[in-house]
Design a protein around this nucleic acid. Sequence first.
RNA 1: GCUGGCGUAGCUCAGUCGGCAGAGCGCGGGAUUUGUAAUCCCGUGGUCGUGGGUUCAAGUCCCACCGCCAGCUCCA
Length: 641
Amino acid sequence: MKVKEEILIKVGDREVAVPKGTPLGEVLSMVGIDNALGAKLGDRIFDLQTPLHEGGQLKILKKGDPESLEILRHSLAHIMAQALKELYGTEKVHLGIGPTTEDGFYYDVEVEGHSITEEDLPRIEAKMREIIEKNYPILRREIKREEAIDLFNSLSEKYKIDIIERIPEDEPISVYEQGDFVDLCKGPHLPSTGKAGAFKLTGISGAYWMGKADQPQLTRIYGLAFWTDKELRRRLKFYEEVKKRDHRKLGRELDFFMIDEKVGAGLVIWLPRGSTYRRILEDYWKEEHLKRGYQFVYTPHVGKAKLWEISGHLEYYRENMFPEMEMEGESYYVKPMNCPFHISIYKSRVRSYKELPLKLAELGSVYRYEMSGVLHGLLRVRGFTQDDAHIICTPQQVDDVIKETLDLALAMLRDFGFEEFKIYVSTRPPYAIGSDDQWEISQKALLKAVEDLGYKAEIDEGGGAFYGPKIDIKIKDALGRLWQCSTIQFDFNLPERFDMTYIGPDNKKHRPYMIHRALLGSIERFTGILLEHHGGLLPLWLSPTQAVIVPIADRHIEYSRNILRRLSEEGIRAELDERDERMNAKIREAELMKIPFILVVGDREVEGGTVSVRSKRDGSLGSISVEEFVELVKELVREKK
RNA sequence: GCUGGCGUAGCUCAGUCGGCAGAGCGCGGGAUUUGUAAUCCCGUGGUCGUGGGUUCAAGUCCCACCGCCAGCUCCA
């Protein structure tokens, strides 16, 4: 008889040698651990029943450990599947996949003869609680491929058969059973259904089988899951906060923007107040770029087909472009990108190395066809303005150019109140154009810039575009969500396609490097993120109205007008509320509009030449002189607070 | 684009079984002159998303389209 191979398992500082294939639970009881739910070995989480085939250091997972949630959520997905089968009939419910998510789980299912709606969720939840109540043991079993196919055929689980067929021949096939429910699953799972924690089904949606549009669409049922009710409630509260800060709601409440279905889906109309904010943002953006040697250009919104042919957009980007327009026998396209125009500017004359790096910047409005289902407020639209620029430089300049650009991006994002960033560098994908040298030089420049600025780059190996590597900056907002804004991208493709050259010191033609970059991304998306980040209360320097003057009675209006004049002279955006309303109503409205300062003016103020200042952020600041207020505002604006 | 849900006054929303289209806010007029989040009175406001159909009768039932929402997929 063959002696079973042994593996060495480390738990804390203890070591045990066990036969290969010993279940985790047995190993743990050997070392006297009886309250674990599972353990992490390498990257994989094992439950107690899963046999270990490799040795290594175990990280014990107990109830309450963040990583043990994985086990809980997996099991809740099964419990939900069991509930569905009991409610709608085993043979009617076809299960897809049921993985865990960041804060819960989902299961993709097809229910014959019934389309599940939100209204069904309470029933499903109740059934799930019943299953938890019954505390079925959850049993793991490894079975042969043929047996698995027979089993799931008999259960009319067509999608499970599909999965089995994709499992490599040498991998074991495991199933988990609880009561009379059985599911194909790798695990990990709880020892029994009664161990499940707090959960709530939150919604449903459609999802394609295997994520492919040509496959049938299943119903995805989402749930949240945590060990305790408290954590679950905290998560629900977070979603409430997200809802409250929704930029679409804020955009309407603050009169920032609108989207009119008569105009078209995904086409944003900026209202006066939003436009004031945008003007300030754009002025700031231009100033920051001027300081760094950018030159501004304006380019058309449409271009001839030939241009898009040379750029390759018609070949590779057509499905994202608005359709062709014909005129005088020529066809034109609305621009989805600004690059070809900036390249035209570059190529308008012979360029010397002495004028490089050339930095051409434009707040360029582009139009892209997006599927109707993906449009979302300001975050996903069909017409938007990129804060775009193309930097054309020599290979020697690449390091400095990248560093300066990354620095500019971070400095601007900080001025808007973002503090935390994640920086991703994406490197050469398997299929790529450009020479090894080009990739080498540019990837190094990207990594060096990130490092020099004191950040650690997350490397997305092979994640670059075929035409060059890139840096993406993701910003963390006040709720901890990550958003991608800045992108700094090398392009080895367009300089070739457009045959861009410069004359070097050797009096010969050379191919320049081109960097495409957008730092805020698009004004629209950035504004959406900014509104949500600040919950609508924008930093003072960006507020369309910085102060509202509220006279208590008509006799204070004249004095109020003087104040308004004085503030306007200082460039402070102030308004005077002269309406025949009570002071309280005016204050309320200004508060709802999230105006940073309310200046109440009555007899006392007129007499003392002061204003009574009420700050949105800090509450009452008492009565101060008008000049003091001017200084306060100027100081805050200067500091971008 | 796909799946599911939704679309009623400028906004938020009610409208039962198919039987006269409603409220609050807003907006207009008037009264009121007030000390830190809604003064009172009167008035105004609708092709019930659009177009068809069923019916004596459609906001309500059916079909198509448009738009919105949650996702899938995709992305600045």
